[in-house]
Write a protein that binds this DNA or RNA. Structure first.
Lengths: 145, 145
DNA sequence: CTTCCTGCAAAGAGTTTGCATCAAA
DNA sequence: TTTGATGCAAACTCTTTGCAGGAAG
């Protein structure tokens, strides 16, 4: 059951429903082609251009956000509600930052620069606990205890 | 006089020097083509592929950062030292955030998620004071005083 | 002189678009 | 029915690459 509703004036097609559902299931923003392939695997019949056209529409409706990650040249698409996240540079796992502390910072920016703040995006790169453990094991065994 | 030095093993060509200098002069990260055109205007003879090749090298050396801005599909390139900024959505002016408050937040993330933090990027979108003023004038005059 | 750099043109990759067909309302 | 959505293939845009000539060390 999808929480996101298809906007007024747009038809409910199985491709569109599937794309939205997939975005809801995935915390990680996906490449257009990943969306296409994952849905194909699930037995949904669609084309890459349908994926792009739907993502474009959803972006214009403010439902989807398009973002480029560090050292990548393909756009990723995710739900607008999932915007601030941590990325593990080793396994690429993504962890959403729920209580974005940016709100506090906002006031400061408004004071100092006089900007009206409309929005923001934060990307943080690091190593997740699981990978940290694996990596330290490897370095220990290479030291041969 | 350029603060950035050309890395060891790379030759000092006029194109390379000019690209680095241009990046130093501009707070705003530039598109590859903008760099190409601006340098052409200054009378420097270069090609677009030279721009790309140099930016690529500088990025691998950690001197330059490649970033995509919201609603843009072309990469922008700026010096790595100029990473956190405010962007005016109206005039596209960029203001660098000097004292990034992220450091405080980092501790919190490490505690909550157990990530080792390697780096981060913050983009903030808003309207700068100048544009705000212009925009409010326009809406007043449209109200006809 | 040797090595690296450049310009040009061609190739590549991701994304967008036109058109005929198809399905939702 | 009417209107919007889809699939396909072609077109486009940005970026990368191969190669021969040229400049820096």
């Amino acid at each position: 059951m999808s929480k996101i509703k298809i906007p007024e004036g747009y038809k409910t097609t199985k491709q569109r429903k599937a794309i939205i559902q997939l975005l809801e299931e995935n915390i990680t923003p996906l490449h257009a082609e990943e969306i296409y392939l994952k849905l194909k695997e699930k037995g949904i019949d669609l084309s890459l251009s349908t994926v792009y056209r739907n993502l474009d529409m959803l972006q214009k409706q403010g439902i989807v956000v398009k973002a480029y990650m560090l050292n990548e040249d393909k756009a990723r698409f995710g739900l607008a509600s999932k915007k601030n996240y941590l990325v593990c540079q080793s396994c690429k796992k993504i962890v959403i930052i729920d209580n974005c502390p940016f709100e506090k910072f906002k006031e400061e920016l408004i004071e100092v620069h006089g900007f009206d703040i409309l929005g923001h995006s934060i990307e943080v790169y690091g190593i997740c606990p699981e990978c940290k453990e694996k990596l330290s094991k490897n370095s220990e065994s290479s030291k041969d205890r």
